[in-house]
Amino acid sequence: MTAVPSPIEFPHRHLLGIEGLSPDEITHLLDRSDSYVALNRRADKKTTLLRGRTQINLFFESSTRTRTSFELAGKRLGADVINMAVATSAIKKGETLIDTAMTLNAMHPDVLVVRHPESGAVKLLSQKVNCAVINAGDGSHEHPTQALLDALTIRRRRKRIAGLTVAICGDIMHSRVARSNIHLLTTMGARVRLVAPPTLLPAAVGRLGVEVFTDMREGLSGCDIVMMLRLQTERMQGSFVPSQREYFRFFGLDRDKLKAANDDALIMHPGPMNRGTEIDSELADDITRAVILDQVELGVAVRQGCLDVLSRDLPELDHNV
């Protein structure tokens, strides 16, 4: 009897975005990620899956939590992890990107984790290297591991994603988290609503299979999940909203607006939070509603899961050395 080759569960070399992944592929990533949650709660968190592998975290944009999360994930899997923060001068950005990619590639990394302030930059870089590339956020395009950790958080709390109603609120226009979540949640069968002032909604966003609201109470009505986004002031050119207090008055999440959602609706936030701008401080700390720290915890497991899945496609290690 011959062995039947198992179907390829994740037939992609890179993880550049959620758009285009099938429900099965997303489920596979979530399942593998879930398997690391218990491990991360043990005293000894180390495994040897990526022993001998080199992971470079290449950040062209500042980040604390995502970079730390990827670093912990790689180290717990036994990889050698290097962090590179690349200062981006306004003029030489592009050259730096390609040149840095070629230079790093010559050092034979196995995985590159890349964040870049320009949409599409991680994809461009992935075309220049031989290793696996994980997009840790590119411009306003995608942040796939954030969407996966949000999905894992929802799945562990609600035991499902399909059929839930999720409101994503705030600065949709500049948010890669929003785009990745829209793709993931709609692919997995959730109903997605976007709630934002029209100045923070990108054109034709309704074509992505979502419902669009400009009133928080209407948008939150009957929701199972309320996902708040950070007001990305550093991305703003010009006046998208008149002031922080006006924004909080109409689009900030407080107890009063939350009443419109289902009684057990969960509050999520990708962090870092602007307390008093998009979310009421006391609400953010309400552990009966906010699952924000769960998201951070599961973020490490998700990055382990992604590294694990992509490593199955790397060349075999030579164990005889």
């Binding site: 758009e19 949409s119 599409g120 590119d138 411009g139 306003s140 395009h141 995608e142 890669r176 785009r179 990108p202 054109a203 034709a204 966003v205 074509r207 992505l208 050119q237 010009g238």
Partner: peptide, 21 residues
């Protein structure tokens, strides 16, 4: 046009690129 680099619309929104109306 501000900082737009392609036509404003569905493709720009998917790609996360600033649009020009």
């Amino acid at each position: 046009s501000a900082c737009g680099c392609m036509n404003e619309g569905e493709t720009a929104t998917r790609l996360g690129l600033a649009g020009i109306p």
